Amino acid sequence: MSDDIILKVEHLSKQYRLGVVGTGTVAHDLNRTWHRLRGKEDPYLQIGAVNDRSAAASSDYVWALQDINFEVQRGEILGIIGKNGAGKSTLLKILSRVTSPTTGSIKTKGRIASLLEVGTGMHPELTGRENIYLNGAILGMNKAEISSKIDEIVEFSGCQMYIDTPVKRYSSGMRVRLGFAVAAFLEPDILVVDEVLAVGDAEFQKKAIGKMQDISNTSGRTVL
């Protein structure tokens, strides 16, 4: 992978099973194992309906993503656009290691911070301040590094009054404010943001977009 390429996705696909919650059935698992032991392809990868939410299901399996390939340069801002159910959030979850791909590979360089939905990475019983330290530790930062950033994070979030209150008492907008501030200021190499910013008010959306442009232009970090 080139030094300028920070993220590379090759032949990425994700298949889900429709219907009741679960990964499959014992019969399916045994069938997959039998094919794998004989060196054959997974039989359930050969089927699967097209991901069209408005059509009736024609199979127990559906491809949320199929054969996705792209590269992202360091410092680039990449917008992923598509209609509801197109697989945008699935792709971001795979890139954030929340779920694994069915086939394909992902190569990344550096730390990834994700803000995929309201409260991502936040422990509801901990205060806002404690969650900042928790998220920083998850990103591999030590306490001194986090402490040097905490005043900027709190100021940007606009949650000064509630910073020592458990996050479970925050409104959805406040959780997004704090979550974005943590993700942006703790210096990840790749920042992954889903539609969660739509929960915030217009003033915060403007601040968040400006911050994403700033960390890309001045710090050379990548934003998805």
Rank of each mutant, 00 (worst) to 15 (best):
Q73P: 07
I132R: 03
L30G: 12
G128D: 01
T99G: 03
G128K: 06
L139A: 03
G22M: 00
K206E: 02
V167P: 02
G79Y: 09
G173A: 01
K93D: 01
E125N: 10
H123D: 06
S148M: 10
D214M: 07
G82K: 00
G19Y: 02
S148W: 15
E125V: 05
E187P: 13
G39R: 06
V26S: 14
G119D: 04
K8I: 07
L65A: 11
V9H: 07
L7V: 08
A49M: 15
F180V: 00
M141V: 12
V62H: 01
L7F: 12
G48E: 02
I209Y: 15
R32Y: 12
V176T: 11
D194E: 12
K211F: 00
L178F: 09
Q160N: 13
D67R: 09
V26G: 06
V21K: 15
V118I: 02
K207C: 00
A55C: 14
T90I: 07
S147C: 05
L65V: 10
G48P: 01
N217L: 15
A86Q: 06
Y16T: 04
R221C: 05
A64G: 10
S54I: 13
E117G: 01
Y162S: 13
C159M: 09
T165Q: 12
E71V: 05
S219Q: 12
L139S: 09
Q66P: 02
Q66V: 08
R53F: 13
T127W: 05
T103F: 11
A202M: 10
S89M: 06
I132S: 03
V182Y: 01
T127Y: 11
D214F: 06
K168V: 08
E117I: 02
I138A: 06
L12W: 01
I153K: 10
K40L: 15
E152R: 14
A137Q: 07
C159I: 13
M161Q: 11
T25S: 14
V21W: 12
G140T: 07
D60H: 08
K149L: 07
I209W: 12
W34P: 11
G110D: 06
S219N: 08
L197K: 03
P124Y: 02
S157N: 03
T108S: 10
L178I: 13
Y133G: 09
K40N: 14
L65K: 08
L18H: 06
I190M: 04
G75S: 01
V167A: 02
R221K: 13
S54H: 11
A27R: 15
Q46S: 15
Q213V: 09
R129D: 06
G200L: 05
R175G: 13
F204K: 00
G136Y: 10
H123P: 01
G79F: 04
T120Y: 08
V176E: 08
M174E: 05
S216I: 06
Y61E: 04
T103M: 10
K149G: 03
V20E: 13
L92M: 04
G39H: 02
K8Q: 13
S105V: 10
T23Q: 14
S2R: 11
T23Y: 15
L224S: 04
N131Q: 09
S13H: 03
M141N: 13
I209E: 07
Q160A: 14
L134D: 01
E187Y: 15
G121N: 07
V118D: 05
I94N: 03
D52C: 10
S54K: 11
V118K: 00
H35K: 04
R221D: 04
L45D: 05
A64M: 03
Q160K: 13
D151A: 13
K207F: 00
R177C: 02
S171N: 08
